[in-house]
Design a protein around this nucleic acid. Structure first.
Lengths: 353, 353
DNA sequence: CTGAAAGCGCTTACAG
DNA sequence: CTGAAAGCGCTTACAG
């Protein structure tokens, strides 16, 4: 007997509002209202608690899909990044996820591998209604795929990288200033032949670092030495290759210091230097960029430019949530934030011999 | 005039099936059928292409929410990890995302910070119908929250860590064998006082490493020296603390070699050793675990146990997709895979002096 | 105050 | 073969 009762309150298949209504002998509307604590519902206390009991016994949870369809709101946001394996982006995701979770959002994370087609595919798929807004950390300066988000009216915020246009909300670090800080630090140590290992100029961060490097070198009357890494390869390996190339120069033209596109590339430089018998910092000073956690643990510990990763993730997410909430999207001004960076002095830089 | 036409084919708001039908002078059913290339549709070629044209002009894309509600399938999966900032988990996510994307799935990534309550909250939210299945990399050996997935019939696969029970599908590395490989390597180098810096025994990986360590030490008649890291703190810092503690032992009892819970902890040991003036590997050999990318770049390069991260991510995702497709979930046997690991010899281990 | 009805945007068995 | 209707599981203005 007891078993039979149990069976009747725990039906097969997912438990829906309708089933609860049937069990409680009341309409689905009423169940919905009491479950959502509608203040205008006036129902006898017994029926009320009866409904509540049945709901909790059956483990009822409203189907989010149905709810989302009704409300036109999914409470999930999408995030596009080039490579989660890059510690900068995993840190960025974490700060995004922290504030998103706290605000009741889930985040769909898409790894594009910096491929334009994967980027477009993901962007298309995300804008099909499964997502309330999107966070884009992969933008190229002239990306045109992003335009589609306008016509589909899906709110978005660029973070980490921005486009050349002014029509996006964006949160980025001040890389121009970062390059300036790096160069000034090296010059103060007595360096004059300072190379910059740069990434592809198609992304704003790289372009800004190059601008900062050039401006500063020019204003000091120093020669520019730029090595360009092929697109999408800003990893250790590229740093190794770059150092080999740079050291092919004649003795008088070899750089005594290098500012790299990011910390990963700097690690590659460190590794190659070790192999080539070049002592860091005695014979070569190295400044990285981003201050990824392992920059501290490498030997020698890396002097670098600190990227305000938590602030960028947090602010971008807050802005996105605000855009999502703002009813007519065009009513709000698009924030364009540029956050300060700072130099972190460690052991990979020293005065020239 | 032209403008007026344009306006009429590009209506305000999201373009729906119904709007296209109105524009084409045909029923929504028909539009749905031609857009989905229903083979049983027989329509005049002109109307057909007319519908197609209107759809592409208006940039129509079917609302995924509505579709999901109808099909009871969202094509998104959830993934729970303790900390994306740990390079092991970012690599795991990447391999998951690669195969998920290729199969047409998106993945919602949730960072639990190893907090039981965040884990439960996310699990609850994910099982509300927004997700076709879930990948769990955070399981504790006796997790009970996971049971709910059974009653809600949401398919799941544990990866990286498993529960003590046999009722889950799982894909994990052979950590017991990993510990054995580490110890045997050290013993071959002449070490006898080999310590193990272990994590919390509540997760299977840790427990298996401890079992492997104990079995091997015991079979060789060597003394056990185990340091336990407090739960959830398997980072560099814990390694530093551990080394300080271990080195407080009397000279005859100090370990000459250490096998650590993971590479991050090993890095901490390396950093602390440097500070304490202990030379690695001359005075102390260190074996890490996981073979995270930076293990190669640290100085000295870390001897470690390779975790088959790509295989684990790939297999777990494939298994999950299979479970999702299998109609009656209980019809398929739950796979429990244990993947082989291997020792990677580098520079942090050497023969005893 | 409660219930029946309409609707969110699709798809598909069912009639005509 | 095509269209109207029902339905996926909710919510909420609208009648009674």
């Amino acid at each position: 007997l007891e078993k039979a009762v149990k069976t009747s309150t725990k039906p097969e298949g997912p438990v829906t509002l309708r089933k609860i209504a049937a069990l409680a002998g009341v309409s689905p509307s009423t169940v919905s209202r009491v479950l959502n604590r509608d203040p205008n519902v006036r129902i006898s206390e017994p029926s009320r608690s009866r409904i509540l009991d049945i709901a909790s016994e059956t483990g009822y949870r409203p189907n989010r899909l149905a709810r989302s369809l009704k409300y036109q709101r999914t409470h999930v946001i999408g995030m596009l990044i080039p490579d989660i394996t890059n510690p900068l982006f995993s840190a960025l995701f974490r700060s995004v996820d922290d504030v998103a979770s706290a605000a009741g959002y889930h985040v769909i994370l898409c790894n594009t591998g910096d491929s334009a087609s994967r980027f477009q595919d993901h962007l298309e798929a995300l804008s099909d209604g499964h997502v309330d807004g999107v966070l884009i950390a992969t933008a190229h300066r002239t990306d045109v795929a992003i335009e589609k988000l306008h016509s589909r009216r899906v709110p978005y915020v660029l973070l980490n990288r921005r486009r050349d246009t002014d029509e996006d909300a964006s949160v980025v670090p001040d890389d121009r200033r970062g390059a300036q800080l790096a160069i000034e630090h090296l010059v103060q140590l007595g360096h004059r032949r300072i190379a910059h290992i740069a990434g592809s100029g198609e992304v704003s961060r790289t372009a800004n670092r190059i601008v900062g490097y050039r401006e500063t070198m020019k204003s000091l009357g120093l020669p520019e030495i730029i090595y360009h890494i092929p697109a999408g390869g800003m990893h250790e390996r590229a740093g190794e290759d770059a150092l080999v190339q740079l050291m092919k120069a004649s003795q008088e033209e070899k750089p005594t210091a290098i500012f790299t596109a990011n910390d990963l590339v700097a690690l590659g430089v460190l590794a190659a230097a070790r192999r080539m018998g070049i002592r860091v910092p005695d014979e070569l000073s190295v400044v990285g960029c981003d201050d990824v956690p392992l920059a501290r643990y490498v030997q020698p510990a890396l002097t670098t430019i600190k990227y305000p990763v938590n602030d960028i993730g947090r602010l971008a997410t807050e802005q996105l949530i605000e855009l999502i909430s703002a009813q007519p999207v065009n009513a709000v001004v698009l924030p364009k934030l540029v956050l300060p960076v700072e130099l972190i002095r460690r052991e990979s830089t020293s005065a020239t011999a």
